[in-house]
Design a protein around this nucleic acid. Structure first.
Lengths: 197, 197, 197, 197
DNA sequence: CATGAATGAGACTTCATTCAT
DNA sequence: GATGAATGAAGTCTCATTCAT
């Protein structure tokens, strides 16, 4: 690890979190040793403790960072042309490495046993709802979605559908299928939006 | 534990799998000790090894059994009136204890590191697709769904949406919301089915 | 196990000791489980405790019995024609199953940690010396061995040589070689007996 | 344990092997716990695993090292005056701690159940034969042993006799007796060597 | 007489964490 | 800042022994 560099500490933390992310995703949190994380980036175990107080802190920080990366993608890609931007959003997401884009699926395994992970995931869920809610309201005001539609419910449906597709990918759904049913599903959900009371 | 009872051994295995299921779900696979599983049902560690060769075997058998319980619910509730039965299916599912209905979410955490869990989950995915595919073909033949709809894609969308809702519940979506958006979403997806090429 | 037979209990103990002997020899004392011993003869673990108070008792009794079998062979084969009888003795010994003829080699591994095994082996050593001592004195009185020879030392040499050959067999010496060097060695030792002061 | 010393790791391994050797000899391999080995040298169990991957590796390395120590003694003491050097060899051997000089006797207990121990012991046997064979051929060429003697057989006899005496010592033969019959026996075997066909 | 379910102590091994260097 | 030796608690699994049936 290089040092005496401004922001060095921050960079080192990132490097460690990358390593941890990948391994947590592949081996699970408990299945991953501090040794594994360290040797993957060519340092020794002890070094990790210079940057993170404990393995749990590393988990939490990693979790938080990865959720932010995913949210960033939503914020960066969503635009006025909704259908266009959902496609762009999803394609960008699929370009991310598995250990980022599927990160929250791994994290769900820790949600019951770690209050911090729990908070990160539920907060994130609320944030997604909020972002989509606002977008949908905007679409309503532009007349692209009927005013009677329930924006709350629509947001939740869109999120559920999106997450469900990622889960399906882990169970064998291939990427091209994922993209095509993602677009079709989103369209159907929005088209049928007047039905939601 | 009573003994010298016909089917006793099978019953004992079930008891152990119930205990394991709950704890795996709450603490994660690696976070759960054989001690925990044993003492939850009032026996000692050693006893578990009379019924399962190893902790991994216990994981796999538990996984397999729980997936079957979920599939059973689908098979038992699906009927001619599709919209009626999806509602029934989902309500029955929600009645199951968390450690059963959310079981596969926990299992996803092991999917990368255990080939048997991987197979169970991917096989299950394929089975769900097949069941829904057949049902949809039937609906098509009865004219309830346009013939142009792609049954494969529709099945995958329905599954993704369903799974996504369960994931959302773990992130804070409440049960009543879940039911109402489940019904609405399924309706929308099916109504828009003609759009899927 | 058949029962209601006179001497049944004795017979059952023999059967168990045979099983134990073989396994102790193949897997070592600690490497052998009560389960292994029991299942080899088609009974369950619990049964063994009807015949032996503990695994240690089983070890000791097995040890004692096997040493007696080996001594019996010496007593049965030794006769007036010494050179003839040593050959007969050795050939008979080689016919015994490995777990009997090499038994004491296995037992040496327990000699330091079990006082009873220790006593059995040292007693046996003294008995062998005594038997050979008497035989050699007899040979001396018949003039077949010079009177100046030290019968004690000769006995010890013969025993050492014999045991050393069995040890060599476990290290790869083949049976035919064993027989030929056994005869030659015994001859040489006796021939040179006048040299022992 | 001191550290950051050149060769520290090697030294630590030696210390551990010494501890293991003694305990294996006294309590047997299975009778010895990693705890015992560790606490004898004032470290904790975990430390052992920094130097040996497993208990079995520790056994094998210990076995190998001890056999080498014994071979070294043979190589270091054998010289032109054969009778003189056999005595020196044996006296040096007797000076070694019990857990070294009797090590192979303990190891024989594992020979049937561990292929590596098996190989170490059989290889060692072959090496001893080779060393002695060469020495005897040399003695023949110097006319100290009749040319008709079979060097192979003689080597095997000498080894058997030597090993048999060590076995006898474990069964109660005292050291002085051992030395005197060792010398006498070797002499007799060599003197009678012309008889071996 | 025989079983086999259950035990519980103890085995080997791993691993997050600490700390002297 | 980084190391790596050491720890000790905890994990999985085994096994001699007991006892109700």
């Amino acid at each position: 690890m290089p040092r005496v560099v401004p922001g060095y500490k921050k960079q080192a933390r990132e490097t460690i979190m990358d390593s941890a992310s990948q391994l947590f995703f592949e081996l699970g949190y408990h299945g991953t040793g501090m040794d594994d994380i360290a040797s993957k980036i060519g340092v020794t175990k002890g070094t990790l403790y210079l940057y993170f107080r404990s393995k749990e802190e590393l988990l939490i920080e990693t979790c938080r960072r990865n959720m932010l990366l995913l949210e960033d993608n939503l914020n960066n890609t969503i635009s006025n042309d909704f259908m266009d931007s959902v496609e762009k959003f999803f394609k960008e997401e699929l370009k991310m490495p598995d250990y980022i884009k599927f990160h929250w699926i791994f994290a769900l395994g820790e949600i019951k046993s770690n209050q911090y992970v729990h908070k990160i995931l539920t907060d994130s869920y609320r944030k997604y709802i909020e972002i989509l809610f606002n977008k949908i309201e905007e679409l309503k005001s532009r007349g692209e979605i009927p005013k009677e539609a329930d924006s709350q419910s629509l947001s939740k449906m869109l999120i559920a559908f999106h997450n469900g597709i990622l889960v399906s990918m882990m169970q064998g759904l291939d990427e091209n299928d994922a993209i095509s049913i993602f677009k079709a599903g989103i369209t159907n959900i929005l088209n049928g939006s007047s039905l939601v009371k």
